[in-house]
């Protein structure tokens, strides 16, 4: 464990909690893409299947349970509890155009052709594109609530910190996982234009709005 990976995990945890609180407090999931949240729940489910069979550390197990619980709670709130506020008309990204190619790629490019490893690879590839419906929705609505931009910033920052963690681990431990690194690069690159808008607008007290 190194400081980049720890701050990455905490940034990820902050993002997940921020979103949960935003929906719970405002009792509304306006501006939130349900499709992205369903894909994140799928990412955690397919990645943490070894939760009970492969104990790494108390920290690892606790975080996995929190991620799983929060992601399912978020999906529940979007599609059940606060369904009336779900903005389905703007959440129109075709998720199947992501899930099917990612599923195929996981079969072709993986470390080991076993069910657990293919599902883990699927979760890594899916996570790298899971935010696309959310970013697409923001371009459709032309704006995002400030709390939602903080959520997205923390979420994007987590994988950027993981990239530094992988440089650290390669240098000090000789460890590297090319599948996770390539997917992590793609994932972080997808946030770049959001990062630019966030830093130039939101951090200057402006609302995030896109030229319609």
């Amino acid at each position: 464990m190194n400081v980049f990976r720890l701050t990455g995990d905490l940034s990820h945890l902050v993002a997940i909690i921020l979103l949960l609180l935003k929906i719970w407090k405002t009792r509304s999931c306006a501006g939130i893409s349900g499709k992205s949240q369903v894909m994140f729940a799928l990412v955690f489910t397919t990645r943490y299947l070894d939760l009970f069979t492969n104990f790494i550390s108390p920290y690892n197990s606790v975080m996995k349970v929190i991620y799983l619980g929060c992601s399912y709670a978020t999906v529940y709130m979007i599609y059940m509890k606060f369904k009336a506020s779900y903005d389905g008309n703007h959440d129109t990204f075709r998720a199947e155009f992501l899930i099917i190619p990612v599923g195929g790629l996981a079969f072709l490019v993986n470390h080991e052709f076993t069910p657990l490893e293919i599902l883990w690879t699927f979760s890594i590839y899916l996570e790298s594109v899971a935010i696309l419906p959310q970013l697409f929705m923001i371009t459709k609505t032309g704006e995002a609530e400030t709390i939602t931009t903080h959520y997205l910033f923390a979420l994007g920052l987590y994988r950027a910190l993981y990239l530094i963690n992988w440089i650290w681990r390669y240098y000090f431990e000789g460890f590297f996982d090319l599948i996770a690194i390539v997917a992590g690069c793609v994932q972080t690159i997808l946030y770049c234009d959001f990062f630019y808008l966030y830093i130039t607008k939101v951090l200057h007290g402006k609302k995030l709005s896109l030229p319609a």
Binding site: I56, M63, K64, Y162
Partner: peptide
């Protein structure tokens, strides 16, 4: 690194 023994990252 060879086959990843077990994925120790979240």
């Amino acid at each position: 690194a060879g086959r990843i023994q077990s994925h120790d990252e979240l």
